[in-house]
């Protein structure tokens, strides 16, 4: 009895803490949804028309048929996927080495990679801009992709190391006895067996890259090269009351793919992020 009462109080406290937190994140989204289905006239009514009298999907139609907007979406897709694929491709050999080889300074190097992750993007933005300028990579998707890749590598190395760790050593030994070299073993045994981990690392990178703002904002000033995040920001700067509803629709269109991917693959992603945290 005492146990259950205590757990009931615990539940109450949990909800008391979580509901405001959820509201904090949900209210802007609700507001966005509300704006995106209004007619221009109703936009002027502000919060008093949270549920509009004449909801419309026309805003979405306009946004999705707009050539510029489609281009931004395509840019986002391109940058997010190339960046993710690149991060996984470059991180995989490093993760394999961290997982399978013993060498001096391994723990320090692993921590070093994690430390890189902790550096705020804002801090390195100016030097980064100058490097890319010197390399002549400003205003290119190539340069932007390279930055996405390097931003994704640290987390990806750690994620992949955990999934390589989970592949039993004996399988690689068996492959060695069967006559495979190290690289062939990696390609034919370790990588396929770590595929779920590789997939979730890829998806996680895509999601992170999709919401990437600072890098493309600094790298790309030409509007035709913008991903959706930068484009919306620039539109918002130039907005007036007559386009608010369109902007809201655009924001939703930009956010929804990540939401869908995350909800669909939530379990996979959480497992990848937490695997190896506990033994067994």
């Amino acid at each position: 009895m005492i146990q259950s009462r205590r757990s009931r109080i615990g539940n109450a406290l949990t909800y008391a803490a979580v509901i405001p937190l959820a509201a904090f994140f949900l209210i802007p989204v609700i507001w966005l949804v509300s704006l995106s289905v209004r007619t221009p006239q109703e936009v002027f009514l502000g919060a008093s028309r949270l549920i509009p009298e004449a909801p419309t999907l026309a805003n979405f139609g306009q946004v999705l048929t707009d050539g510029g907007f489609r281009l931004y979406l395509w840019n986002s897709v391109k940058l997010a996927f190339l960046g993710a694929a690149g991060a996984v491709a470059f991180a995989a050999p490093a993760s394999y080495a961290f997982s399978r080889m013993t060498f001096r300074g391994k723990p320090a190097l692993m921590m070093g990679i994690l430390a890189v992750q902790m550096v705020s993007g804002l801090v390195i933005l100016i030097p980064l801009y100058r490097y890319m300028d010197r390399l002549g990579l400003l205003e290119t998707h190539f340069g932007t992709t390279l930055l996405y890749i390097s931003a994704g590598i640290p987390v990806t190395v750690w994620l992949l190391k955990t999934s390589f760790d989970a592949v039993p050593m004996e399988l690689e030994e068996a492959a060695a006895i069967d006559g495979l070299g190290r690289f062939e073993t990696f390609l034919r045994i370790t990588l396929p067996l770590a595929a779920p981990g590789v997939a979730s690392a890829l998806i996680l990178n895509v999601i992170l890259n999709w919401s990437q703002f600072l890098i493309p904002f600094v790298m790309l000033s030409e509007s035709a090269k913008w991903p959706i995040s930068v484009a919306i920001f620039n539109y918002a700067g130039a907005t007036n009351a007559t386009t608010t509803q369109l902007l809201a629709a655009a924001c939703l269109v930009a956010v929804v793919p990540t939401l869908i991917v995350f909800l669909a693959l939530q379990r996979l992603i959480v497992r990848a992020l937490t695997s190896g945290a506990l033994k067994g």
Binding site: E170, L171, A174, A176, I177, G179, I189
Partner: peptide
């Protein structure tokens, strides 16, 4: 290398390729 020695080995936990 193990492959060049022309030996075969049976492991305690079988070490079959699961895929």
């Amino acid at each position: 290398s193990p492959g060049e020695r022309d030996v075969a080995m049976v492991f305690q936990n079988y070490a079959l390729y699961p895929h």
